[in-house]
Design a protein around this nucleic acid. Structure first.
Length: 299
DNA sequence: GACCAGGCCGAGC
DNA sequence: GCTCGGCATGGT
């Protein structure tokens, strides 16, 4: 394995990998093992630098200096994070999230891997999505002699069956994953070509795929197409918006939440959303943990 | 052992 | 156009 070190200012590796945008990185020692596309990596953060072991076996097809570029691109180290955070609205909830999530970046994920993973994500907790990602990689991914296998291609999953996919604890999502894999494998859904589309057209295309609706389409736009405005609204964000931004006796409709968030969070709304999501989810989980501990102590 | 989870889809209004 | 139930499964 080659070892390189790359500068990574304004970046928190653990925060980014644990924020619920990517699900396959495994904590090992002081760092994380995972893949970027088909390449295996082990990455440790040392202050504002990353120590990168990786890329698997060096191949003549790849220039030696390519690895730092691949890593820096994946973690979007070129995103102007101070400017992005400064663009967030100035209010108590957003400010708390911004402070809590310092160094969190929106990763540039491979399109198919991101789409497939989020098709599997509906009404699943983050911990379970990780399990599904792992199961799919181990059952269908190519062995790479590494801790984490690469995500299986659309072609590979298209050749599987709903029965086999269900063995990865997918439940009813198996049918959608298979159908979407077949559309992508056949070329009918050309994920790479779609990167040239406008936000609105890309959104329509994604929503045309089995198992993809407004929420998952926005996740894929944000995490795989670098549409940093895209604002996925899941149960956590719905709670945040209803509690802190649009409190009202009469429940706001999903439509109202969409209109508000698109207008209110601006150019980097997707980043703001991710900060709000991760902060809400993490602090809520901590609260629940505390509560159960104190309950136990009392009984 | 309930309750909940990064929703989507078709059916019935 | 909108609301509502069904869908599988495991973590908390």
């Amino acid at each position: 394995m080659e070892l390189t070190e790359i500068p990574a200012p304004d970046f928190d590796l653990a925060m980014t990998l644990n924020s619920g945008q990517v699900f396959h990185w495994k904590k090992i020692g002081n760092g994380f093992s995972g893949t970027i596309g088909d390449l295996p990596f082990y990455i440790e953060q040392r202050q504002s630098a990353l120590k990168v072991y990786g890329g698997g076996t060096p191949s003549p097809a790849r220039e030696p200096c390519a690895l730092p570029r691949i890593v820096a691109h994946y973690f979007a180290l070129d995103h102007p994070l101070p400017k992005i955070c400064a663009s967030f609205p100035d209010d108590p909830v957003m400010n708390a999230a911004r402070t809590f999530c310092r160094g969190l970046r929106i990763i540039r994920q491979p399109r198919w891997e991101c789409l497939a993973t989020f098709v599997c994500s509906s009404v699943k907790q983050v911990a379970h999505i990780r399990q599904i990602s792992k199961a799919l990689r181990e059952r269908f991914g190519v062995a790479n002699n590494h801790v984490v296998r690469a995500f299986p291609s659309a072609e590979r999953l298209a050749r599987s069956s709903e029965r086999d996919l269900r063995k990865c604890a997918l439940g009813y999502r198996a049918k959608n994953l298979l159908a979407t894999a077949q559309l992508v494998a056949s070329g009918e859904a050309d994920l790479e070509a779609w990167s040239a589309l406008s936000d609105a057209d890309l959104y329509k295309k994604l929503c045309g795929l089995p198992g993809v609706g407004p929420k998952i389409a926005n996740c894929v736009m944000l995490f795989a197409y670098e549409r940093l405005r895209a604002f996925p609204i899941d149960v956590w964000i719905t709670r945040v918006l209803r509690q802190h931004y649009l409190p009202q006796k009469k429940k706001r409709t999903v439509q109202q939440l969409r209109q508000f968030s698109e207008a209110h969070f601006g150019e980097y709304g997707g980043y703001a959303q991710q900060y709000l999501f991760h902060h809400a989810r993490t602090t809520r989980a901590a609260d629940l943990g505390q509560a159960s501990v104190s309950t136990k102590a009392r009984t």
